[in-house]
């Protein structure tokens, strides 16, 4: 199992005839994602990479039974695209577009609460359940199927961490970016809850950065609700206050949102924080070798569990080779 997307996920690409939309449609198809429809108003009847194009999300959904949509439209049109997907009843909307005004997102967030639609992003690289499906822009080949859940506010930094995990034999259940904007549809807490419930996921990597208090809230949530080990990384220890570091959400404002505060919050909650992206894999290894804190079994019996887990990981790596 994985979270949010799997082999059966049927995807609509909003903005499929655009440069980015068309390019990533091919990438996703090559990975094995079931792209069933595309949407560009006024272009119904055309095909992109063999995928039929419709005028609206509703038409695309009615014709194909899609349950997920991914948005590659320019930021000016992204909010409308999100509303359209939600209105058509799509379960998961992944908004790749960057540069959506924060006040628009406040309204979107409020509106989506009254619907069954979950939004990932905006300004997200999307998500991937290795070997099953990829909805987004991340390079598929660096991922491997396995048991580590990865959740991040970043793009390439996530690839860096995933690449190290894969090279060290740790495959992933699902990797997803929640987006680099200050207001996003799905936050760390939502994803942590899903990973905790997912039987495939044995440990979680959380990649945070400066700005806001999402990491602090995640630390408190993990301490209270998670039985699976979590390893964190926080980018921006050297970021100066008051300057936006690329992502709209990555800014230390009014003296709060620093990396130091976030690392301290994780430490207080007993969560290991990696000093560098490559150290994440090392901490994951230690976390999985250690007996789980909340399993109340005598020490002797813990050992077999440990070897079992290592085996499991090896197995999944093998499986991936055949994919």
């Amino acid at each position: 199992m994985s979270i949010l997307i799997d082999r059966n996920t049927k995807v609509i690409v909003q903005g499929i005839t655009g440069r980015d939309g068309a390019f990533h449609t091919k990438q996703m198809l090559d990975y094995g994602t079931k792209i069933v429809a595309g949407v560009t108003p006024g272009r119904a009847g055309e095909k992109v990479e063999g995928v039929p194009v419709f005028n609206s999300v509703k038409e695309a959904k009615d014709a194909t039974g899609a349950n997920t949509s991914v948005i590659y439209v320019p930021s000016k049109f992204a909010v409308d695209a999100i509303y359209e997907a939600a209105d058509a009843g799509v379960d998961l909307v992944v908004c790749i577009s960057e540069g959506v005004p924060a006040l628009d997102m406040l309204k979107v967030y409020g509106y989506l609460k009254g619907t069954k639609t979950r939004l990932l992003g905006p300004n997200t690289p999307g998500l991937i359940s290795p070997g099953l499906s990829k909805v987004g822009i991340m390079p598929g080949q660096i991922h491997k199927k396995g048991s580590i859940g990865v959740v991040s506010r970043s793009g390439t930094l996530t690839y860096e961490v995933v690449y190290n995990l894969t090279n060290n034999g740790f495959g992933q259940s699902t990797c997803l970016g929640i987006g680099g904007d200050p207001i996003v549809g799905t936050g760390f807490l939502d994803v942590l809850e899903l990973f905790e419930k997912d039987p495939q996921t044995e440990a979680v990597v959380l990649i945070g950065e400066i700005g806001g208090t999402d990491e602090e809230d995640a630390a408190a949530y993990i301490k209270k609700n998670m039985t699976k080990p979590v390893v964190a990384f926080v980018a921006g220890r050297t970021a100066p206050p008051g300057k936006r570091m690329g992502h709209a959400g990555a800014i230390i404002a009014g003296g709060s949102g620093t990396a130091a505060e976030k690392i301290a919050a994780f430490n207080r909650a007993g969560i290991k924080v990696a000093e560098s992206p490559s150290e994440v894999a090392i901490l994951i290894k230690t976390a999985l070798e250690k007996p789980e804190k909340k399993v109340k079994k005598p020490a002797k019996k813990v050992k077999p569990i440990k070897t079992q887990k290592v085996k499991k990981i090896k197995n999944t790596v093998k499986t991936k080779k055949t994919i």
Partner: peptide, 22 residues
């Protein structure tokens, strides 16, 4: 990438130098 850029700056600091920029 913004996240990787920040992580790179942090690593410069970790190894005893200071980044000139993001």
């Amino acid at each position: 990438g913004a996240g990787l850029a920040m992580a790179t700056m942090d690593l410069v600091k970790r190894y005893g130098a200071e980044p000139a920029n993001f």
